[in-house]
Simulated scan of single mutants.
Amino acid sequence: MRVYLIAGELSGDLLGAGLMRALKARHPEAEFRGIGGPRMIAEGLESLYPLETLSVMGLVEVLRHLPGLVKARRHLRHDALAWRPDVMVGIDAPDFNLGLERQLREAGVPTVHYVSPSVWAWRQGRIKGIARAVDAMLTFLPFEASFYRQHRVPVAFVGHPLADELPLVNDRAAARAALELPTETPVLAILPGSRGNEIRFMGPTFLAAAERLLATVDGLELVIPAASPERRRELEALLAAHPGLQARTRLLDGRSREAMVASDAVLLTSGTAALEAMLCHRPMVVAYRMAPTTHWLARRLVRTTWISLPNLIARETLVPELIQEAATPTAIGEHLRPWLCEPASRAALEQRFATLHAGLQRGASERAAEAVLAVAERRPLPEAPAALPGETS
């Protein structure tokens, strides 16, 4: 069996390596070729380009690299057709992969795309191009699969690898001991983001909210993971303007997952961190600000009731989302206080998150391999449950 794989960044390399292991368990003789990183290469991929070839962010950077990307895609198309794979799998990187998938599918190669772009939220017209490009879309989340079914695109919901990685039972006391945090007092984890502009937009607001909470929540302790040395320096500068917070704050180098498990509640910006907090079973408040022009455009382009993954997965408002002008220190504090001071409310949401976690913990790599083999062998895709435990329609 021959599988052509194209991954565009480190997260895709991780997904690709898991998929390759699951495919080899079924077909030990399988051959792999395309683009991948060290994990995929270790599993036996013959990588024709460095993984970083497709890791281009930002409009200016993409334009500067566009000639090289076009040349690489042309070369990969010719190489794949000469190699004659049984199936081609594009892992994320939709701007690059969907075009290659369409070209190969038109030439008779079955194609799969692993990780749905956010077509359900914005630029929904892309669904027509996706339908022409793929024989199957593999999604992490059930609401994504429902969207593709509505548009008659073959889809398999495979679950989320992060849900497989994180345990269904976690130990708050052990996490606190590892971080040298008090056992009994309330703990708030603050994750202001991994990018400099997120720290700039949200850092002062998050710290002002924490300062208000310190005045009303007895014994409150704060833990703030810094995503990088640069983010740590930025956070240290912000904390210097809040001397009352410094004695009650533990600033960490990374270790965001431990910080969330150790906490009673989490304050964060939207993104994968919200999903990770849900999979750590911790109540949260999602707050986000962006440049006014960006927000103006987003309000006109994005078509979704919610922006945070816990709410999107549950299809209801489980956690507060405070966006732009609504993301004030006062509002953030008012929404966090119940999670910090009302154990019964906190426990109820933690149980709901554990139920949603169980529904996403499905063995994503194995299910993805089943779907890829079905496409390669031109069989129907494996069926998935209509809804997850705890998910509302």
Rank of each mutant, 00 (worst) to 15 (best):
L268S: 13
D218I: 06
A215V: 03
E236L: 15
E234H: 13
A265E: 05
L245A: 00
E258N: 12
T205R: 05
A240R: 14
N197A: 11
P204S: 13
A265G: 12
D264L: 06
R195H: 01
A237D: 14
G196R: 15
P192L: 03
L220A: 05
P204L: 13
E234L: 14
L268R: 07
L220W: 07
A227P: 09
M260L: 08
L245H: 00
R232S: 01
T249H: 05
S194Y: 10
A240D: 06
E211Y: 01
L239E: 08
Q246A: 15
L235H: 12
A210F: 02
F201L: 09
D253V: 00
G244K: 05
D264F: 03
T249M: 07
F206Q: 04
S270E: 10
E234N: 10
L238V: 03
H242S: 00
I224F: 06
T205Q: 04
R255M: 01
T216C: 02
R250M: 08
L267I: 07
S256D: 13
A215C: 06
V261G: 00
R200A: 15
L235V: 10
S194F: 13
I199A: 00
R233P: 06
S263D: 14
E211K: 03
R250I: 04
A227S: 11
L235I: 14
G219H: 10
P192H: 04
D218F: 06
R248F: 03
T249P: 09
V217R: 08
D253M: 02
L220I: 01
P243M: 09
A215T: 08
T249V: 10
A247C: 05
L214K: 14
E258G: 07
A226C: 11
A227K: 11
R200D: 10
L222V: 13
T205W: 03
R232T: 01
A227R: 09
P225W: 08
E211Q: 12
N197D: 11
V223C: 02
A237C: 12
G271A: 12
D218C: 10
T216W: 04
Q246D: 09
L239A: 12
S228K: 06
S256W: 04
V266A: 06
T269L: 10
S194H: 13
P225N: 11
G219I: 03
G196D: 14
E221G: 12
R233V: 12
P243A: 11
R232Y: 01
A247L: 14
E198T: 02
R255S: 01
P229G: 10
A259Q: 12
L214F: 06
D264C: 08
T249K: 02
A208N: 12
L267T: 05
E258D: 15
D253T: 03
P229D: 04
A247H: 13
E198I: 00
L268C: 15
S270N: 13
L251M: 09
A247W: 10
S256E: 06
G271C: 02
L220Y: 08
L191A: 13
A247I: 11
D218Y: 09
A240N: 09
E236G: 09
V217L: 11
L252H: 01
R232C: 01
L191S: 12
D264H: 15
P204V: 10
G203P: 10
R195N: 04
A273C: 11
A237L: 14
V266G: 05
